[in-house]
Design a protein around this nucleic acid. Structure first.
Lengths: 324, 324
DNA sequence: ATAACCCGTTGAAACGTTTCCATATTCATG
DNA sequence: CATGAATATGGAAACGTTTCAACGGGTTAT
């Protein structure tokens, strides 16, 4: 494997000159450039990126740390993140934490050792400031503390729209269904928007949540349907699409039909084709914009730029399906 | 950021000793070890993995090159691949080629420069031998040439099972539906198995394919349904789940009901919950086994091991859904 | 004619590891 | 006690790149 030195020798120039030709830094005369390029071609030389990273003490690698790439929301996000990174010449390292705090810490440690240029973190715990010495980090969909810039969808407005659309579709009593991990604070805004809209319109509402994931889905829904005051709910806003689909499935077992008896709206917009039913009415997160925005902000940080806001909220859209 | 030298100085030992303690290579007395560990702790030293990679002329990074992580089949695969790699202390670089040959080459080039330890390639073109100087590579689901070891599901048996199950479910005339890229040779076996089983059972069959992707889905199905000889098909084996779902959707528009009028079986098994309908009857690819097998083989290659077979076929399973 | 300057170029130093050879120490053996 | 073997440690070299101080030669200004 030829090195820059071999190129320099063959071309009859110094290594510095070769380096400057490769990176076209300062000026090199056209003749010299030609000689160098010829030598590169002849030797089939390719720059050793690892050596470069080492010398520069930084790499063009960005890590994406998320619970599971298997989840369709995250895989879509990852797709756009990789695309945006690639446009800027960065590589993506993928890390599945499984949502486990210790695995997240383990990965932070590893990324630290590997001197990645930056991290996009979709974590379930707060990130301690002292974990990351000086690696820029952006979070998506989770507000992790004021030091870390966060890109998220406009959860509050999403909640308001959801309530509004349910009511518009004829719901007289609406319910918010949520399963959250405790530190996942940003999602609370979906609830808040929902409540505010229901109250603004004077419609009765219920909040039904499971925060600590001690319940199984089974128990969660069993309890919901057995509670007397939930009997006359005619509009349901589930805080994720998956939860909405689970609700619809369970409801059917109780003889409650969607959308005839109850209107349902989810959140995320993970269905990207119309092949499987029910097609959920949902608050669509602008995944592509979130991904690209996150990367642009991250690269700005990497390049020493200052970022003004600490939360960027991208507008959501209501997407009508078969469940309202 | 402290280096190994700082640790050595503080501990009052040589750099070699520190290195040996970190990697516990040859013997170091317990006392010396203790001194070194204390110094490491005090300085908050973490080994610089980039420098190590540089010196060793190899990294613990493996690249996964695939058309799109967004596709549920690939995202499941990626999940298990990352998991298996992580167990062995390897990191995963994710590359979406979009199925574009030039992007694939571009990535190969990049990975070459970055001296990744190995590549899992799910590509749409044949990989030229000369592209990869000496990076071990494994392909999944695509047989790319005899030099490259391939892990795949047992496509032939899958095809036979599909035909068998359709006939068992009462189909009198069966059809194979396929959309393939031309070099994607391994999938041909699904067709071959299908044909062999239909012939073995003496059942009439049709092969309906689109190889070059010049048709839109629209045209593909329009032509299928308008062909006279396709009218009495009562069993359809689509070579992917997505294609099966599209077929069912289109068929409905023509007044053909599934499974009443036609039984449908897909291939892949991408649905991992029972929330969306129709739940496809399908030939389930053993994604997890394929992923782990691929990584185990790749790591074996990386560590200089010899691999006996050049194709590893993992058994498939028939998973019954609502469409047969 | 000399000084000052500019431009293109050179090559050594440095980045943080691992490895290997040399040296120092310990220990067992005769 | 002398010798040799085994064990423990130190430190220089090397990996391939970038960068920077220094240099040479040509041009311009004085």
């Amino acid at each position: 494997m030829p090195s820059i030195k071999d190129v320099a020798n063959l071309a009859g120039v110094g290594v510095g000159t070769v380096s400057r030709v490769i990176n076209n830094h300062s000026s090199v005369t056209p003749e010299t450039q030609e000689k160098v390029r010829a030598a590169i071609k002849e030797l089939n030389y390719v720059p050793n990126e690892v050596a470069r990273n080492f010398k520069m003490q930084k790499s063009k690698m960005v890590a994406l740390l998320l619970p599971s790439i298997w989840h369709p929301f995250f895989s879509e996000l990852a797709y756009y993140i990789e695309d945006e990174l690639d446009r800027e010449g960065y590589k993506l390292i993928l890390c599945n934490s499984g949502g486990k705090p210790d695995k997240e810490l383990y990965y932070f440690d590893m990324l630290n050792q590997n001197k990645v240029a930056g991290i996009v973190g979709i974590t379930y715990n707060n990130i301690e400031d002292d974990i990351l010495t000086d690696i820029p980090i952006i979070s998506i969909d989770r507000h992790l503390g004021n030091t870390i810039t966060c890109v998220t969808s406009d959860n509050y407005t999403g909640g308001r729209i959801a309530a509004g659309k349910l009511i518009e579709a004829g719901a007289k009593k609406v319910a918010y269904l949520g399963i959250n991990s405790a530190v996942y604070s940003e999602v609370e805004l979906r609830k808040k928007g929902f409540i505010d809209e229901a109250e603004a319109q004077g419609v009765e509402y219920i909040i039904y949540e499971e925060l600590d994931e001690v319940y199984t889905d089974e128990r969660f829904f069993e309890d919901f349907f057995s509670l007397y005051e939930n009997r006359d709910v005619t509009g349901v806003f589930a805080n994720t699409d998956i939860l909405a689909a689970k609700y619809i499935d369970k409801a059917k077992q109780y003889g409650i039909r969607t959308p005839e008896d109850v209107k349902v709206i989810g959140y995320d917009g993970i269905q990207d084709n119309k092949l499987f039913h029910p097609i959920l009415s949902t608050i669509r997160q602008p995944v592509e914009e979130m991904a690209r925005m996150a990367i642009r902000l991250l690269l700005k940080k990497i390049n020493g730029g200052k970022i003004k806001q600490d939360i960027y909220r991208i507008p959501v859209m209501y997407r009508v399906g078969e469940t309202t």
